[in-house]
Design a protein around this nucleic acid. Structure first.
Lengths: 197, 197
DNA sequence: CGAAAATTTGACATGACTCAACTGGAGTGG
DNA sequence: CCACTCCAGTTGAGTCATGTCAAATTTTCG
């Protein structure tokens, strides 16, 4: 069995922040395995079951849904050091409502839901970290909803670029447009207007 | 000290669903007090601290934010047998970002955050119920985001009426419009178009 | 290099917003 | 109890940004 290298942020999260002992940390990380998702490939599709907790070490992705008219609507993007998946499916055990698609080649560190919960019983801090994480995810979703309701396309685009400057280079225009809920043509024109200023 | 009457759904939730013993339930409910919020009054304002868990026994309300241009944006409504407040402020102890305003005269059953957490230590089921509730709230927010992104005003209006038929009678048009992210005039015209069909 | 996909650009239609006026009902005070 | 005020809702006219359809151009990738 080959050793997996864990990113600094991962180590810091569970050793420093969460304060797992060396033994607990070793036990925890021993259950991880690597997965790869090629560009444009899907990590999850609607109807799949999300049974893994996946930490992104390389690449980026988007979660999207398909509406009644067949259009893809990007809910959010995911980058390095974030956790990937469809939380609802993971927590409820029900099929995914979302698609998760790699925008760049991705590298993931994964632990099965079963292993994670088993470890959670032996390492209570792990569960309390997880509960806190769900809370934070909820806040993020709520903020996303607020933003979606409040901002005009132009502000939304600028604030997105501010939060994730590399998105311009890494994420194709059409996905950003779908995140902003406008047509690619409109975003293209918006960009043009902005450069003219 | 006068006895508070707890609604059927409240009793069912904690006795049947959660399975609290008679003693646990009695202890839990003994910490509640009643509060009232008059129509158009605010239960919470931006900057306030949400230190109560509040169960709605009568009336309805809306959570909203004010955007940079000064416009109110309704995030969601709250009706009988729901829990009221700004979860983020409750969980983090930070000031509210949202306003919570009564649309009708409201009657609430409240327990302080401090009491709730103290009881949570003695009654672990209470905490696990709470964690599950946060999960469900998160799913609801995510669904709201999906809906906000996907549906045209017309479908969104119809689906809202389907989920909460009494909203038409109880909630003024302007608040529904702000929930749908359109101007009151536009909703008025939308309603007209729908009745003509 | 060539095919396919992504982006840009153009022309036009549409739907929501803005500004403004009007209507109708609820609540107030004489 | 009526007149008045105020606010919510409705309606109208004009503007503008976005969507749609279509085509041109650029980029990507085999």
């Amino acid at each position: 069995m080959m050793t997996i290298e864990f990113p600094d942020k991962f180590v810091a999260l569970f050793r420093s922040d969460l304060g797992l002992t060396v033994e607990e940390y070793a036990l925890f990380t021993s259950h991880f395995h690597k997965e790869f998702v090629g560009k444009k490939q899907h990590y999850l599709r609607e109807g799949d079951f999300n049974t893994l907790k996946a930490y992104v070490t390389k690449g980026c992705s988007r979660n999207y849904i398909i509406d009644e008219t067949g259009k893809e609507k990007t809910l959010f993007f995911c980058f390095e050091d974030w956790w990937l998946g469809d939380i609802e499916s993971f927590l409820t055990g029900k099929p995914c409502k979302q698609y998760v698609q790699a925008i760049e080649d991705m590298e993931l560190l994964c632990i099965t839901k079963a292993d994670f919960y088993k470890l959670g019983e032996r390492i209570p801090r792990l569960m309390s970290w997880f509960n806190t994480k769900i809370q934070k995810t909820h806040f993020a979703t709520m903020h996303r909803l607020m933003e979606a309701k409040c901002s005009q396309p132009e502000e939304q685009y600028l604030s997105l670029l501010e939060k994730q400057p590399d998105i311009y280079q890494r994420v194709p225009l059409q996905y950003i447009a779908s995140y902003m809920n406008i047509e690619p043509q409109s975003l293209s024109r918006l960009r043009k207007r902005l450069t003219q200023k």
